[in-house]
Amino acid sequence: MDKKITPLSKLFLVIIFFILYAPIFFLIFYSFNSGETMYDFEGFSLEWYRQLFHDTRLFIIVLNTIVVALLSSLFSTIIGILGALAIHMAKRRQTKNALLSFNNVLIVSPDVIIGASFLILFTMAGVKLGFYSVLLSHIAFSIPIVVLMVLPKLTEMSPSLIDAARDLGASSWDVMSKVIIPYISPGIFAGFFMALTYSLDDFAVTFFVTGNGFSTLSVEIYSLARRGISLNINALSAILFLFTFALVVIYYFITQRNKPNDMGVRKR
């Protein structure tokens, strides 16, 4: 493939990245505001950061958010892989279509509907609202997105690859672990990160299914928004952002060192 990048396309990428990050830099910029609002920069101050570090409740909420995101992505990725395999291996076209349609229902449904119907479901099942109901819901709405990320990888995998492995005497498990999974792993990682994104972003579903004593960051921000967002939330976002940013970069370079083939993608 053409490996050169012309200056014009470089500029294009720079603009895209600039736009993607602009609101975030805006938030971070105002976290250093000594005033109280996001439209009038009065002077530089670290006051909001100081306040943030004294707020244990907010810290617990941040931890809640992260743990729900991580666990739900983990479980939904595993179930999602199984689901994608089930759809892929369905022999009849109708079964495949039916499964796919069911799969996509949760993607199309507005969050409010998902939240409301899950709330009814949990009420009927007698699940207490709190950590487990939120975790279950996040797993539930992340599964279809993982399936959608993994499925294209499965379809594009040539069946002869599996046949070849079979001919060489590989068992079903070997075919799975040595041929299929490595092949689709970019899709799996993509699915995991998408699930993480959905979970971190979700407000409406969590809002419905959470009870007292458990809150996530987005729910907290929505209830704080009544008075205009306090700038310690900006400070929090700044810290979280820099933290994830650093984590992503470090993670990338570690995997690069350990494994020259980035994330299992075959290179030619």
Partner: peptide, 17 residues
């Protein structure tokens, strides 16, 4: 905290709180 009367009522009605 809640941000609307309706949301608050839904939560109390549900009973898991």
């Amino acid at each position: 905290t809640f941000d609307s009367n309706e949301a608050m009522m839904t939560k109390i009605e549900q009973g898991g709180t």
